[in-house]
């Protein structure tokens, strides 16, 4: 992995705030998959380019995304969560997620956290603290915490090990057993 993980299960980061119905097209437009660029590195400068111009230059390792309802709706393109992870985003806190994005994010070790209050109160740049084991997310600047339903242990393991591929590499199979 190359990067020393201080803790993947408990961390704090600076918030980038988005509204409802952010689609995978908003995260990374489908046209870039078939243009002259096809690598993730090449697509990175176009991350959120319509909804948050300049995002890829300003985002820092360990930041978090805070969004409204139905984050990641639309296409199944895994480029969307993969690019967020590559840009340094450590977690996404949203009121709800589209299901394919949710699965993809877990598979890549990028925790998708469902919360109701935090997305309501958070402003851009606020510091967000997350404890995946406790199931707790806090906005430090607003002095507000919220509990969320913790992930099942198998999913926590996948996230902790950096995704399903890393998990399979380490353990030789899926965390649910492959029969």
């Amino acid at each position: 992995m190359g990067v020393v993980r201080i803790s993947v299960l408990k961390f704090a980061g600076r918030a980038w705030v988005f509204g409802d119905n952010i689609s995978t097209d908003h995260i990374i437009s489908g046209k870039y998959k078939f243009g002259s660029i096809s690598t993730l590195e090449g697509m990175l400068p176009h991350l959120f380019e319509e909804v948050k111009p300049g995002f890829h230059e300003k985002v820092r390792e360990g930041d978090v995304v805070v969004a409204g309802r139905n984050f990641g709706m639309g296409s199944s393109r895994e480029h969307a969560p993969a690019l967020l992870k590559m840009a340094g985003v450590r977690a996404i806190i949203a009121k709800s997620f589209a299901r394919i994005f949710y699965r993809n994010a877990i598979n890549l070790g990028l925790p998708p956290i469902e919360a109701t209050l935090i997305p309501e109160v958070t402003e851009e740049g606020d510091t967000i603290e997350v404890s995946l084991i406790e199931g707790k997310v806090c906005n430090v600047d607003k002095d507000l915490c919220e509990n969320f339903r913790p992930f099942p242990n198998e999913i926590l393991k996948v996230i902790a090990e950096g995704g399903i591929v890393a998990y399979i590499k380490n353990h030789g199979g899926l965390p649910w057993g492959t029969g």
Binding site: E78, N104, I164, L174
Partner: peptide
Amino acid sequence: TGVGSTDIAV
């Protein structure tokens, strides 16, 4: 159902 690239690889 639709899934992402990692799911399909698995």
